[in-house]
Amino acid sequence: MEQYFLYNSRLGIPLPAINGSWEEYDIDTQHAILLHWEKIRGSIPDRIAELEKTINLKQAQLSDESNFIRSCELNSEIAELASIINDLWLWYRTHQDISLDKMHQ
């Protein structure tokens, strides 16, 4: 299945990397791809929870930080982690309907 997915280091999960038209794949391959995606998709909330823990740690550091430059760095890191979480939720929600529709065909 790795040929149909590409690891995204920013998000920390593999993402679909389908070349060509979905209809070009036979039904067994389509189902295998969707099953694999559902496993990945199911791991997204755990990945988000990991990132939220990191954000909480950085926020705790920020509340004790007196160095302005370091405070700015922490704020930037928190913003990037929040952006990653947002993107993960988009992948999680957007492809939920697609997966369900395709698996029931």
Rank of each mutant, 00 (worst) to 15 (best):
L15V: 08
I27P: 12
I69G: 05
I27G: 13
E80P: 00
T94S: 06
D64M: 12
P16Y: 12
T94H: 04
L88M: 03
S83D: 09
E77H: 02
H95I: 05
H95W: 11
D46L: 12
T29K: 08
E23M: 13
T29E: 06
I33P: 00
K102E: 10
E77Q: 04
A17L: 13
S63H: 09
S21P: 15
N56A: 03
Y92N: 04
I18A: 09
P16S: 04
A32E: 04
E80D: 11
I78H: 01
Q3P: 14
K39S: 15
R93S: 09
R70L: 11
S9L: 11
Y7N: 06
I84G: 00
Q61T: 03
S9I: 06
Y92F: 07
D97R: 08
R47P: 05
I85M: 02
D97T: 10
P16I: 11
S99Y: 14
H95V: 08
L57A: 10
Q59K: 02
I13T: 04
N67L: 03
D64Q: 10
I55N: 01
N67E: 05
E24F: 11
N19T: 15
S9E: 10
F68E: 05
S99A: 07
P16D: 08
L6Y: 12
E73L: 15
W37C: 02
N67C: 04
I13E: 02
Q3R: 14
E65R: 01
L62S: 00
S9Y: 04
R70Y: 15
R41N: 05
H95D: 13
L74G: 01
C72M: 12
W22G: 08
D28R: 06
D28T: 13
I18S: 07
A79N: 13
L74P: 00
D97F: 13
S83W: 10
R70C: 05
G20C: 07
D97M: 10
S66T: 07
S43H: 14
I55L: 00
L15K: 03
R47T: 05
S66K: 11
I69R: 03
K39C: 12
L100H: 14
G20F: 09
E38H: 15
S43F: 05
H95N: 14
Q61Y: 04
K58T: 01
I18P: 03
D87E: 15
D64I: 06
I85F: 02
S66C: 07
I33W: 01
I84V: 09
L34R: 01
I55G: 00
